[in-house]
Design a protein around this nucleic acid. Structure first.
Lengths: 109, 109
DNA sequence: TCCGGTACTCAGCGCTACTATGTACCAGTA
DNA sequence: TACTGGTACATAGTAGCGCTGAGTACCGGA
């Protein structure tokens, strides 16, 4: 895709990842692959890892190292209580924004 | 609101402003006021003006100076053909992103 | 005269995603 | 053995965008 998505992902990618982790624990490589399957073809690997480091430092997730059969050990992230609160806040913000944008979209027709 | 909105506006604010201009020509101060009425209470004035300069330099809008009874002359922006194309692209990007996020939101319940 | 509303501008900062590169482990294969 | 490719993580540097804070300027009313 293009630069437009890149800018739009700022602020939303974190929410997306938290939402994924709300469903089940996951590790970086897995998340990146999943995102690419979903159509986010040009999400950079580094972006996801950097984001995971960030949310870990903010205490939104718990981390566990799990050995892999196919490579280096995985860092499996799971959402904790603080992360869930942050995610809830994300959904409020998202709803606020998307409602207004959707209104503009409708208004044009 | 908070920092979350700030980050989320990156990439979307431009589309929002283009969508406003698609409805009717407008000037910076007017756009800022309108956004604040809509609940974007902490949109900085400087942000809107900077954005307008940017989209003008990219040739997405036409500009006309119109005298005001109440202060300095207004710079009235109107969307041109290139701007409309860009806005259409914005809506495609937005739909892509919001569909995926909405799916995540549903999946959680 | 001073205040407040209107209207625009700009330098500097912080945050987030991308680029590019590197490390490391393992399986299959030539 | 050497090489390739998939798995898995990390990080220094860059760019873009919104915010902060400050400034300029015009006007009407108290």
């Amino acid at each position: 895709m293009g630069k437009q998505v890149t800018e739009m992902l700022k602020g939303t990618l974190e929410g997306i990842v938290l939402a994924i982790l709300a469903g089940r624990p996951a590790y970086g490589y897995e998340i990146t692959s999943w995102l690419r399957d979903q159509g986010f073809t040009d999400i950079a690997e580094g972006t996801v890892y950097a984001l995971l480091v960030r949310i870990e430092q903010r205490g939104l997730v718990d981390v566990e190292k799990v050995p892999s059969e196919k490579g280096p050990p995985r860092k499996v992230y799971s959402l904790n209580a603080q992360g869930e609160a942050h995610l809830a806040e994300f959904w409020r913000t998202w709803s606020f924004l998307s409602e207004r944008i959707e209104q503009l979209h409708q208004g044009e027709k």
